[in-house]
Design a protein around this nucleic acid. Structure first.
Lengths: 220, 220
DNA sequence: ACATCATTCAATAAACTAATTGATTGATTA
DNA sequence: TAATCAATCAATTAGTTTATTGAATGATGT
């Protein structure tokens, strides 16, 4: 076997990962991904002291996850170039997978013979173009606010039972949540079908959509 | 604005990232991804003491990146469930993007009017089924050895000039490397075209292929 | 030019992480 | 049942990383 992987790229990968290895930095990165923001605002959002936030932000910048520009007195941080969100999405998906695994649901839903045959992103895009589909985001409100598929309706799973009336009767409904390992949309589809509605799952969730570079909508 | 992201998932994400935040652990994970292996072998491959390797491996296991099983006296580590390779691929791609950026090549290749119109994975799969395509992996040999697209020929970019004779004359050649931000395959295509061969780039690289869950080939 | 304001820098103490050593576990073979 | 062997655990030391403080930038607006 050759001398395995180039050690230098390993070190670079590890450095990138370590930069994301602190909850405050991940939080800051999320806040930046929502919208370009000055340091003070970010510190407030993340609940950090100014100097502390500044240092974390500089770490993120050194790693290339964010960029800055000056606007008058303030320095605005924005998302950097490159596949930053894909990376963050990958982490989020793995975290989501682990949670699902803990609840011992993954195995069940894979074992389940009718996997509710989810709809792929490609098919969804086609269906959306035709207009015969209602997109339903069943994640909690704050996650929806941070970004969702264009035109998606938000009814968190917990509220779904009580808000069935808000959904169109004739149309096909496509529910999605955090990804293939997240059970929210599966539960939603089961619930909707029981109520006599035509519902399917999106195979992949919001992070995946984001990672694929497709357009998203954000709350104001 | 609502209370932003759930702090708990942020902590979990950060923990995952921190686990990948050490070159030795990334190296171990790569070695494990190649093949199920016992601790001793992994320690040797990564150049670590046994106890040290064991500790790193346990970190990886705690995070869910790897799993273990016993086989006689030895304990074999294998890749865990969930989108581990997608995550690692995401990191690799971001690292690759940064390198390209440093060389100030990304901007150029995006600015370049004819982006060498790359071929998509879907199209490649179709073409491969027809058999009229030669797949060319232009990454260094050791990277190729760790895994490559099924049936791909390996000629590292540095050797390409001298080994043009190994390529079929009539067939379309599809070159790939580490991903959309890697310049190896672009350079290769340019070189091949100059030599009168029909060549195109794969839009996405090996890590992306891996992340998409498609079949790969490994050296023995 | 001066005062102002957002941000960064520098220095410190506290907390955490990594590598080494040697002891321990737990399954296998004789 | 004892010897063996792979792997893990425990404890130590050295090295990093984090949050805090207060001082230093550096562009703005009067």
């Amino acid at each position: 076997m050759s001398d395995s992987i180039q050690p230098q790229i390993l070190v670079e990968i590890a450095e990138l990962a370590r930069t994301l290895g602190h909850a405050h930095r991940v939080a800051l990165l999320c806040h930046i991904s929502e919208e370009e923001r000055p340091v003070e605002k970010l510190a407030e959002l993340a609940g950090l002291s100014l100097a502390n936030a500044s240092q974390h932000l500089q770490n993120l910048k050194r790693a290339g996850f964010v960029d800055t520009r000056r606007d008058g007195k303030r320095i605005l941080y924005r998302l950097g170039g490159g596949p930053v969100m894909a990376l963050l999405g990958g982490l989020q998906q793995f975290a989501e997978f682990k949670r699902a695994e803990l609840r011992q649901v993954v195995v069940d839903s894979f074992a389940q013979p009718s996997r509710l045959h989810g709809i792929s992103r490609e098919e969804l895009l086609l269906r959306l173009a035709d207009g015969g589909v209602t997109l339903l985001d069943v994640r909690p409100e704050h996650e929806y606010a941070l970004g969702h598929l264009p035109g998606a309706l938000n009814i968190p799973l917990e509220e779904l039972q009580g808000r069935l009336g808000e959904l169109p009767q004739g149309q096909q409904i496509v529910a999605y949540c955090r990804g293939p390992y997240c059970v929210l949309s599966r539960d939603a589809v089961t619930m909707l079908r029981v109520s006599g509605l035509k519902a399917r799952c999106l195979e992949s969730g919001y992070p995946d959509w984001l990672a694929a570079g497709l357009k998203v909508e954000k709350a104001n």
